[in-house]
Design a protein around this nucleic acid. Sequence first.
RNA 1: GCCGUUGUAGCUCAGUGGUAGAGCACUUCCUUGGUAAGGAAGAGGUCGUGAGUUCAAUUCUCAUCAACGGCUCCA
Length: 645
Amino acid sequence: MINISFPDGAVRQYESGVSAMDIAKSISEGLARKVLVAGVNDEVWDLSRPITQDSSLKLFTWNDAEGKNTFWHSSAHLMAEAIEAKFPGVKFWVGPPLEHGFYYDIDLGDNKITEEDLAELEKKMNELAKQNNAYIRTEKAKADAIQYFTTKGDEYKLDLLQNLEDGNITFYTQGNFTDLCRGPHIPNTGFIKAIKLLNIAGAYWKGDEKNKQLTRIYGITFPVQKELDEYLNMLEEAKKRDHRKLGKELSIYTMNDDIGQGLILWMPNGTVIIEELEKLAKQTEEDAGYKRVVTPHIAKENLYLTSGHLPYYADSMFAPMEMDGEKYYLKAMNCPHHHKIFDAEPKSYRDMPYKIAEYGTCYRYEQSGELFGLMRVRCLHMNDAHIYCTKEQFAQEFKAVNDLYLKYFKIFGIEKYVMRLSLHDPEKLGQKYVNEPELWLETEDMVRQVLIEANIPFVEVKGEGAFYGPKIDVQIWSAIGREFTLATNQVDFAQPRSFKLSFTNQNNEPEIPLIIHRAPLGTHERFIGFLLEHYAGKFPVWLAPLQVKILPISDKFLDYAHTIKQTLRKASVRVEIDERQEKIGKKIREAELARVPYMLVVGEKEAAENKLSVRRQGKGDAGQIAVDEFVQNIVEEISERKPLE
RNA sequence: GCCGUUGUAGCUCAGUGGUAGAGCACUUCCUUGGUAAGGAAGAGGUCGUGAGUUCAAUUCUCAUCAACGGCUCCA
């Protein structure tokens, strides 16, 4: 007999060789129907695998991450079975679960798969699922496994086998499909009740663009149809708040083939938002002791050789223009320009920290396939600033920048983000990162300490640092789930040296400063793209392109409407009148759809008493109010940058 | 850049080997209406671009550009 301990602390005895499924059945039939996979001594196991020694046991269902992962991984095998049935001889790489669903990477050989095939594959999968085929685990000797895949001519599985230890190699079979697989799997295909294959994509083998491109098929499955319907519905809803859709609907920005890929044309509505953001940035930065500067959009080649950008990032810069034997580049970053301003006049420790800020226009030649609405573009306007400081000042200054982020995020109500401490990768020193191993470790620790002392939760990720130093990135997700860096706060120990920047310290000796690069509001492009999705187009009043729409009941009240408009204009409120000869219902509908925060209905009653009927976007009629009182309220709401309630 | 999909009116989308249609938007007229679509008429497109096949191409083929879904990349 063996002892099995459960998460609640209970210990029960079973015969050696008992399976997790047997145990589940001994607890209740209901549980046995729901359980998908087991946790045995913190390892995830097949339910059917015999347990032969004292163990702790957890039973995972669809409600557990382990349950979902196993379910989706088993679904990937089911998809592979369907694909093999339709295209015999294709070779499989790996088929892991994802946060939502799964994929399988396949070498289709000469076969071609189109989106029309997906429906057919789904049908086949449903058929196979209904057969309730068990996922059967078999252990194999490495030599036998190699033999098996050599005969099959499957170089992909042979590649996987290279890294596996003998005695650790398992195959799984369900129906007619057998795959090299670590497992575990759900008991049988019958659990998979709802199937949707989402899309076909190319994916480089092992994620390296120098390798062959495999075909990747994404799918998702559920144990009940209703959950699939809900998931697909959720995807549809997410598309509705996609910034590209909202950006068009609300006339924020446009793009044009004659201008070029990734080059944003900001329309009047978008420009209002840009100007409000810049106003906020300027106020905040002035309060924090920054000075503003302006620098050109181009510079000579030598500048980027000095900064070290060119060797690392030439591919991401627009090709140079040659004039009078000089090469001029469009700037992809503002830092070197700012360094030249720092260096223009001698600095003393009394000048430090020296902070200069600019909404800098940068051009980056992003690969065409990477461009994505406002989130990834080729011309961007960066909320940039550089802080030149002493080593002693660094922690305080770096923390002040972090506090600035948090202050901004509070204004915008940004709560769903992850702070990422982005570090260098020691293996890529000298290639992707300047070769200063000790300075890396030292500055990385400085940044880490700032985060720890400020009690800000963060994750550390190797290989995400800038080439000149570690950084803190604020990661956010777009409506359709893509991850982006919204804002960044970076340390730079490399450029001060390459630009030979220095200040005179208290001992009258030259000293090299540290630089903090920071962009808490990121770029206008990405930030506004994010805000569109964050607010679902319903901007708070201070940011709204149009703040007030006056809706006269009929054109008899146009004069009164104009009087109100003048009053609001005097208070710098962005206001328009809907002068069309349309019914009030239609005027309201269109103002609602345009996400105008305040609609003012004016007719006979209002004109007689010098009042307004206020309607708030999405909230309906808010009743009558005196004109002066409304003006006072909205001015306060705007100047305090209040969020929508 | 690579794999796949798509490209018809300002927008959302039908459709066809014989030079095109709907709804909304737009213009004009009627209506002066009180909290999410009043009515009528009209105007608007060489069907992304270029080439090929054909008596004839928006439709078929190829190329190209762009957008979209991924991969790679992201200072």
